Computed example of a mutant assay.
Amino acid sequence: MIRITDRIALDESEIEESFIRSAGPGGQNVNKLATAVQLRFDVRGSPSLPEDVRERLEKLAGRRLTREGVLVLTAQRFRTQERNRQDALERLVELVRKATERQAPRRPTRPTLGSRKRRLEGKTRRGTVKRLRRVQSGEE
């Protein structure tokens, strides 16, 4: 079990890993060894995620989510499979942890009376300056 929060834990069987050739560092080995990790997690089919977390995770995943609702993370920062596996898993945990956080609903606010008066005074002042810059009818 991979612990996300005290209420949410993902089962390892829900995560599928495959190894692909990496485009990152590796010297001569880069063309021979499959060190990059492609982690797949079925967001829509996961029994471990509550519905609200699932919806937020789908929004957070963006283009990393397939049409079928599978989250695909590719890790190729490091030169070894093991470190890339760790990196991909940490990124998944971080993404799910972010999805567990609810955003506070926005409460619409109104400008104060003082701020409205200051705004209107500024507009009046600016209009006066512009009016004084105009060419007078008898001056030209």
Rank of each mutant, 00 (worst) to 15 (best):
111 P>I: 02
84 N>E: 03
87 D>M: 08
42 D>S: 13
56 R>D: 11
118 R>F: 00
29 N>S: 11
9 A>R: 14
44 R>S: 13
39 L>N: 06
86 Q>P: 01
9 A>H: 14
139 E>Q: 12
95 L>I: 05
55 E>K: 15
37 V>I: 09
13 S>L: 06
19 F>T: 07
100 T>P: 01
15 I>C: 03
52 D>L: 10
130 K>P: 00
50 P>G: 08
1 M>C: 07
114 G>Y: 00
86 Q>W: 11
1 M>N: 11
9 A>Y: 13
15 I>T: 05
26 G>Y: 03
18 S>E: 15
75 A>R: 07
1 M>F: 13
140 E>K: 14
8 I>H: 09
56 R>K: 12
129 V>T: 10
126 R>P: 00
89 L>C: 03
82 E>K: 13
61 A>P: 07
126 R>G: 06
27 G>L: 03
19 F>I: 01
46 S>Q: 02
56 R>H: 09
85 R>M: 10
74 T>A: 08
1 M>D: 13
38 Q>C: 14
128 T>G: 02
82 E>L: 13
22 S>N: 03
12 E>C: 04
39 L>V: 05
13 S>T: 15
90 E>C: 07
77 R>W: 04
106 R>Q: 05
95 L>D: 07
106 R>Y: 12
51 E>K: 12
128 T>M: 06
121 E>R: 10
89 L>M: 15
11 D>K: 09
49 L>A: 05
89 L>F: 06
22 S>P: 03
7 R>P: 03
29 N>E: 10
61 A>V: 09
